[in-house]
Amino acid sequence: MTQSMNDFDDRLRRIDSQRRRAGQTRALSRGLSQGQGRTMRFEVDDYGNVRRLKTRRLPLWRLLRLLSFLVLGLYLFKVAAFATLGESRFLLRSAELAEGSAWKRGIASLMQPDPLTESLAAQLRPLLKSR
């Protein structure tokens, strides 16, 4: 009986070392398993049955919503800066940015005034001056 227990322990050590080499020990201990290119999650219910949980994915619309709010916020900042500084000072500051590093040149190209920026700034300027 002792020999069979030693054989079983040896087998467990071999399996554990193989999983460690494959980097799966931590994932398996959390109930994760690799399958078909995706990570699958498992749980044990109250009756001892192993059930596969649905995979959680980050929907694309969340990422698109975040990026659209970021772009809208940057554009509103551009409009507010154009309305506050005026056209001449805004162009002067964007020209100063264009003389800087590659990062600043990229920002300067984004900050160039366009017709929509000018029209929104014209509508925003009276609101800013009234305060």
Rank of each mutant, 00 (worst) to 15 (best):
R51I: 12
P113D: 12
M111D: 00
L63V: 15
Q18R: 09
D16S: 15
S88T: 05
R19I: 06
W61S: 01
Q24Y: 05
D9P: 00
E87S: 04
A83T: 01
L124N: 02
M1W: 10
G106L: 07
G37Q: 03
Q34G: 07
P115Y: 10
M40P: 04
F77C: 12
S101K: 03
A102V: 06
R51P: 03
P59D: 07
P113L: 09
R105W: 01
Q123A: 13
R89K: 10
R14V: 08
L58D: 11
S94P: 05
K78D: 05
P59I: 07
L12W: 15
P115Q: 07
L92P: 03
T2Q: 09
G48F: 06
A102F: 12
L64I: 14
R52Q: 12
Q3K: 10
R38I: 11
L127D: 03
E99T: 08
R21Q: 13
L64R: 05
Q123M: 09
A27E: 04
L12N: 12
L28N: 15
L92T: 13
P59F: 02
F90V: 02
S88M: 07
S29L: 10
M40K: 10
L92R: 04
A80W: 05
L92S: 14
Q112L: 13
L72V: 03
P126M: 08
L116F: 00
K54T: 10
Y47M: 14
L110Y: 12
A108M: 06
D16Y: 15
A95S: 13
L12Q: 15
L58P: 10
L127N: 02
R38Q: 08
M5A: 09
V44F: 03
N6A: 07
L85Q: 00
Q34M: 08
M40T: 09
E96I: 15
L74S: 09
R62Y: 12
S33V: 07
L110V: 14
R52H: 04
V71L: 15
M1T: 09
S109F: 09
V50K: 08
I107S: 04
A80D: 01
F77W: 01
I15T: 06
V50E: 09
G37P: 02
A83M: 02
L120V: 07
L92N: 15
R57K: 15
L64M: 15
L28C: 12
L70Y: 14
A80E: 01
V50Y: 07
R14F: 11
D16W: 08
R57L: 14
L120S: 01
L74P: 00
A83Y: 00
D45R: 00
L28D: 05
R30Y: 07
L76S: 14
L64A: 12
R26M: 13
S101Y: 06
V44W: 03
R105S: 05
L85A: 07
R56A: 08
P126L: 09
Y47F: 11
K54G: 13
M5R: 03
G106K: 05
L128G: 06
L128P: 03
T117C: 02
K104A: 12
L92Q: 12
A98T: 02
R51Q: 11
E118W: 11
L124W: 01
F82S: 06
D16T: 11
R14E: 11
L120F: 10
G37I: 00
V50D: 06
G86V: 12
V44A: 09
L28T: 14
F82G: 01
D7W: 08
G106F: 03
W103A: 13
F82M: 04
R20Q: 13
F42M: 10
